[in-house]
C-alpha cells in the first residue's frame, strides 16, 4: 500500500541574483512500513525534499500525494491540521518544548487532537517505555542528554500514530552510542507499529541500518536501492 507518492517534483528558489534548482524532477513512491534513508552531500536538496514531503514547503511544480491527497491542494490551516494527523517530525536539534516534561512533550500532539486522557497516558507511557525513558518521564529536556532528548522526540513523532515519520538528520548531533540506541529504537518501532520512517542523513551508520537507500545529488535521485 502506497502511503506517499512524489511525482516529478521541482523546487526552484528565486533569490534576487541566482536561481537555485534545489529539487529537480524527483519521483518516488513509499510503501507502508518502509525504513528509508535519503542520502546525499549537504546542498544536494534532501532537506528541501523532506520539507516538501512534510508540507512545510511547497513544490514549484509536481505533486506530493499522501494517501491519495495532494498536499498542494490544501490551504495553510488545513495543511497544519493534516500534518498533525498524518506526519510525525523528528528534527536535527530535537526541538522539544523546554518548559514541558518528557511526558508532556510526548502527549502534546495527542492533547491537540483531543485524545481521551486515559488513552493519552497509556500511549505516552508505552512510547516512553519503548524508547527506554520510562524512568525519566517527569524530566524536562534540559535534564536529559542529547540522545535521550532525541528519543523523546521520536516518541513524540509517533504519539498520534502518523502515516509516516520524517526525520531530518536525526543523528547529526549524537555520539555513536546514542546513534546506535536511537536507530535500534526507531527500527523496532518501525517494525512493531508499521509506521513508515523516512530520514535524510549523511551518517554511514544510519545508511547501514536503512532498508532502502535513496541517493540524491544536485536535486536529482541518482540511485534507489532496496536491501533485503
Amino acid at each position: 500500500m502506497k502511503v506517499l507518492e512524489i511525482k516529478n517534483v521541482h523546487k526552484i528558489y528565486n533569490s534576487s541574483e541566482v536561481k537555485v534548482h534545489a529539487v529537480n524532477g524527483v519521483s518516488l513512491d513509499f510503501e507502508k512500513g518502509e525504513f528509508a534513508a535519503i542520502v546525499g552531500p549537504s546542498g544536494s536538496g534532501k532537506t528541501t525534499l523532506l520539507n516538501m514531503i512534510g508540507g512545510l514547503d511547497t513544490p514549484t511544480s509536481g505533486e506530493i500525494m499522501v494517501d491519495h491527497i495532494n498536499l498542494a491542494g490544501l490551504k495553510s490551516s488545513a495543511l497544519i491540521d493534516f500534518r498533525m494527523r498524518n506526519i510525525g517530525f523528528v528534527f536535527q536539534s530535537y526541538n522539544l518544548i523546554p518548559v514541558l516534561t518528557a511526558k508532556e512533550n510526548v502527549e502534546f500532539i495527542m492533547s491537540l487532537q483531543k485524545w481521551d486522557k486515559k488513552e493519552r497516558d497509556q500511549r505516552t507511557l508505552e512510547l516512553l517505555k519503548a524508547v527506554g525513558l520510562e524512568d525519566r518521564i517527569n524530566s524536562r529536556p534540559s535534564k536529559l542528554s542529547g540522545g535521550q532528548q532525541q528519543r523523546v522526540a521520536v516518541a513524540r513523532a509517533l504519539a498520534s500514530k502518523p502515516k509516516f515519520v520524517l526525520a531530518d538528520e536525526p543523528t547529526a548531533n549524537l555520539d555513536s552510542k546514542s546513534t546506535e540506541t536511537l536507530l535500534d529504537i526507531m527500527e523496532e518501532l518501525n517494525r512493531e507499529e508499521g509506521i513508515t520512517f523516512i530520514f535524510s542523513t549523511h551518517d554511514a551508520r544510519v545508511v547501514k541500518k536503512a532498508r532502502r537507500v535513496i541517493t540524491v545529488e544536485d536535486g536529482q535521485v541518482i540511485s534507489d536501492e532496496r536491501k533485503n
Partner: peptide
C-alpha cells in the same frame, strides 16, 4: 524556532 516547530508538528494558528 520553537513556534516554527509547533506549527510544523501541527499546532494551528
Amino acid at each position: 524556532k520553537e513556534l516554527g516547530m509547533l506549527t510544523a508538528i501541527g499546532m494551528n494558528k
